[in-house]
């Protein structure tokens, strides 16, 4: 079976762990727990009738006090940038993280998700900003770890991109 290392990246408390937990165990907890260092989870998905084991490195959230350890990124086949729709600053963090990844491991496949769509009325990230991301080639998803929206699609799309990096599916763009 093919294994792929995927890093979950994003600002502080954007919902990386919740997305992983929703994806792996289909469980969501309202109780927030800060990730210390890194947590590794796995989930097997099927892409084009082929099983792919995604090793999900859930890294601690990037903030002004602690920055991502670049050594964790090494060997990644892809990554997911997670943003919190209710905090525009997390979009900037995602940009910085994306640049860090490119600088560290190169232009590997990635997808992004703006989380907390269940709180869409409180969103600070507006449509122009999103369009700008898409213009830069970012596959942008909307989802909610709490409601389970967009989670399967997010990981499925990245898995597909990992297996056929030359021709990403249209649904991801």
């Amino acid at each position: 079976m093919i294994q792929k290392k995927i890093c979950m990246l994003g600002g502080f408390a954007v919902g990386k762990t919740s997305l992983v937990r929703r994806f792996v165990t289909n469980v969501f907890s309202e109780h927030y727990q800060t990730t210390i260092g890194v947590t590794v989870e796995k989930k097997t998905v099927m892409v084009d009738q082929q099983d792919v084991m995604l090793m999900l490195w859930d890294l601690y959230g990037e903030d002004e006090f602690q920055h991502i350890r670049e050594s964790y990124l090494r060997g990644s086949s892809g990554y997911i940038l997670v943003m919190d729709g209710t905090r525009k600053a997390t979009l900037d963090t995602a940009r910085l993280l994306q640049q860090t990844v490119v600088r560290t491991v190169g232009p590997i496949p990635f997808v992004s998700i703006i989380n907390k769509s269940d709180l869409q009325s409180e969103w600070e990230i507006d449509q122009p900003a999103i369009e700008q991301l898409r213009e830069q080639g970012w596959p942008v998803f909307f989802g909610s770890a709490k409601l389970g929206q967009g989670v399967e699609e997010l990981f499925g799309c990245l898995a597909t991109m990992l297996l056929s990096p030359a021709s990403p599916p249209r649904t991801c763009l």
Partner: peptide
């Protein structure tokens, strides 16, 4: 336990200690 997760965590621990 899950050898894949353990492998990942072993690697992460090493990176953490080294850093």
């Amino acid at each position: 336990q899950d050898e894949h997760v353990l492998s990942g965590m072993l690697t992460a621990i090493q990176e953490y200690v080294r850093d």
